[in-house]
């Protein structure tokens, strides 16, 4: 599964990287509700990481409502949107944008360019999700 990338030389723990990768795949539409995730066993072999680490990531994803597991059938992308409070959404958006902007300012990006890049990114995301965003 090439959409899940983990890199042990990065700062975040591997299970966190996997949680983020799955969420990113759902956000971009690479995974849609009802898609089955590979099994813990398969992912452990593909990514060459400890199956306990994968299991931990799966527990976290299920706890956040990103996936549901059906005993005997596997783990699936959840039909419902993950529940997140308005405050949590605001905080995450702010963190994300501040990260990008602190990098963009030293490049000399103008407000206009920044706004355009944002609109383009939104449009691409909407396109991939079939206009559903």
């Amino acid at each position: 599964m090439s959409i899940f990338r983990v890199d042990p030389s990065r700062g975040e723990p591997l299970f966190q990287q996997l949680v983020d990768a799955v969420k990113r795949a759902v956000a971009t539409g690479a995974l849609v509700p009802g898609d089955r995730l590979p099994s813990v066993r398969e992912l452990a072999r593909d990514l060459v990481i400890n199956p306990n680490t994968i299991a931990k990531a799966f527990r976290e994803l299920e706890g956040e409502g990103v996936t549901v597991s059906r005993p005997g059938a596997g783990t699936f992308v959840s039909e419902r949107r993950p529940t997140m409070s308005r405050e949590e959404r605001r905080r995450r958006l702010q963190e994300g944008f501040e990260g990008v902007l602190t990098e963009a300012v030293p490049w000399g990006a103008t407000d206009e360019e920044t706004r355009k890049a944002f609109e383009d990114a939104m449009a691409r995301l909407r396109g991939r999700r079939g206009g559903g965003a």
């Binding site: 030389s9 591997l14 452990a44 072999r45 060459v48």
Partner: peptide
């Protein structure tokens, strides 16, 4: 490492290893 992962997948096996390759340690 792939062999190690196969070993871990077999229920109930215990491993103790020393290594200087910490990215590998992180994986397993």
């Amino acid at each position: 490492l792939e062999v190690m992962i196969d070993l871990i997948q077999e229920e109930g096996r215990t491993l103790l290893l020393t290594s200087h390759v910490l990215t590998d340690v992180e994986r397993v």
